[in-house]
Structure formats: C-alpha cells, structure tokens
Design a protein around this nucleic acid. Structure first.
Lengths: 147, 147
DNA sequence: ATATAATTGTTAGAAATCTAAACATTAGTA
DNA sequence: TACTAATGTTTAGATTTCTAACAATTATAT
C-alpha cells in the first residue's frame, strides 16, 4: 500500500531511532543524547547554538540535554577567549568513547536500512531527501545559505 | 555536502512537523494530535492499540494525547459489544473538522516538499522509503546477538 | 560613555514521549 | 469452576521537546 511522504518519513525516523536505542541499550544513553554525541564527535568545542541547530532542536531543549550529559561526565562546558556569553562544549574521554560507539551503531543501522540498494539508488535517495530538505526549508524568496 | 541517511530522515521529519504546526497554529492543535486526527479520519472507531501502532507511539503515550483531545472535545471513547477491555475512539464533529484541516495541511506541505519532482522520481522515492521501512523493521534471520 | 540592539543561554511551564509496572478484563485450560 | 495466561489501557516517574519570557553579555550607534 502506498503511504504518504509524511508517514514514511515519520515511520522511518522513529524506527531508526528505536533501532539505535536498542543497539546501545547497555550504554544507558537516553533519547536526546546520541545525536549530540554524534555531532560533537566531528565538532568538538562547538557552541551550544550551533549544536542545537545541527541537531534540529531548540537551544532551550539542548540546555536540559547537556545538563544530563554533564552529570554523566560525557561533556564539559567552558568559556573561551574572554567571551562569557558563549559556552563551548567538549567531549570528555568517556564522552568520546560513547560517541564513537553511537556512530558505529548509526552506521550499522544505516547499512541494514539500505540493504539491497544499489549505489545508484543510494545516490538517488540522498539526492531526493536533500531536495526535500531544501524545498521544505525554503521560506520563500530568501536564499541565505548558512554553513 | 552529503549527509547521512539518519540525519536526512531526522531533519526532514522535524521540518515537516514544524511546517505542519506553523500551518495550523490557529487551531491550537498540539504536537501529538494531528497524526491521531489524520489516522482517525480514515479509521474512525479504531481501538487505542491500533491507533498507537499506526502513529508509531506507545499506548501509554496515546493515553495522554487522547486525554487532551477528549478535554477539547475532539474525540469520544466508547466501549462496544460488551467488550469492556477495549476502548473505541470516535471523532466528534469538531474533531472531524480539525482532522480535515490537518489533512489539507499535510497535503500542502507534501506538495511543497516534492516541488520539482517528476512522477517517476516520486514513485522511486516512495519505493525507497518503503524498502527502508521494511529493512529496518525486519527482525528476522540476520546476526541477532543480544536476544 | 551611555543607551540601545542583538546574541547566547537559561528558566518556567506545558506537552509528548519513553519504559516499567500495575490494573482490569477476557480467554484458555485443567 | 477456578487457575493461569494474554490483552488493552492506565499510572508513575523520567527525559525530551516546545514556546515564551528573562538574564547576561556583546556589539552598535549616538
């Protein structure tokens, strides 16, 4: 049966997330943490605003997620360069370990998800999803590209 | 820049959801409600277990969402056929109105999301996402360690 | 230098979500 | 019948998420 785009995006995202959590259950990482770890793994020392944008959550949400991660000693937050407004977030050793673990699991699920896909199909899929992303993101007229 | 599948699914789902909420802001519908309304629109009288599965949320979560919807008089819950274990959920007139409104908005965003897609591309996308869904959902046969 | 803007992060309060456990009802079985 | 298992929903407690308002800091303009 043919489903709507919204349904498929939602279902796939949720299933992906659940598979991830099931795969790293032993780490005690909670729902909001893996994506932050995954981002920090390649962007250690990012400021909170940047992390929130990358993880598609609000800064206010990130505040509470980081609090939990700080309590578990996965990250530290530091001021730098005399800038007392921005807080730079760094992985601890333990945090980096779990970040790599999470990334491995992300990759594993991705491989499973794309089982049977040819390289051409994978490319086409990536292209489609990127175009959708741009289409939805387009507020009309403004062509401001960040990053 | 090429993103991971997980990132694209997550980002697209979140953006889709945000676009939807922005489009129906005046209805005061909250985050968890549109998908339930959308499902009930085609499955009026479904039991809660079925709704939860279709919306990819846990039954316990649905309990609280339905409570809010009942308070707003968008749905009613009734027992039927002397079965006092299952609760059947029905849209009220007001609920049906909002359900149709939500569906219109879903369609509108979907159209925007797929702007520039040919029919063949739309079909390919649907095929891809359906296959991913099946792949992730597949618990069977493959290297299952920790069960 | 002082007032005003913009930026960054937090708090507060509500909703959605999860897991685990409890509860109530129904069905299966001895 | 009575015991047991299965089913459908709810409760309890925690995390994630949102928006709106606030606080602190930095940048800009007069």
């Amino acid at each position: 049966m043919k489903e709507t785009l919204h349904y498929l995006l939602m279902a796939n995202h949720v299933l992906f997330q659940k598979a991830l959590l099931a795969g790293i259950k032993d780490t005690k990482l909670t729902l909001g943490q893996p994506k932050v770890l995954d981002y920090l793994r390649n962007h250690d020392g990012a400021v909170q605003k940047e992390i929130a944008a990358a993880c598609h959550i609000e800064p206010a949400t990130l505040t509470s997620v980081l609090l939990g991660m700080e309590n578990k000693e996965l990250i530290t937050r530091q001021m730098q360069n005399g800038n007392r407004r921005s807080l730079y977030v760094f992985l601890t050793g333990k945090g980096r370990e779990l970040a790599e673990r999470a990334t491995l699991e992300f990759d594993k699920i991705e491989e499973k998800a794309l089982y049977g896909f040819t390289d051409a199909e994978k490319e086409a899929l990536n292209d489609f999803l990127t175009r959708i992303h741009e289409n939805i993101n387009d507020k009309g007229g403004t062509t401001d590209d960040e990053n």
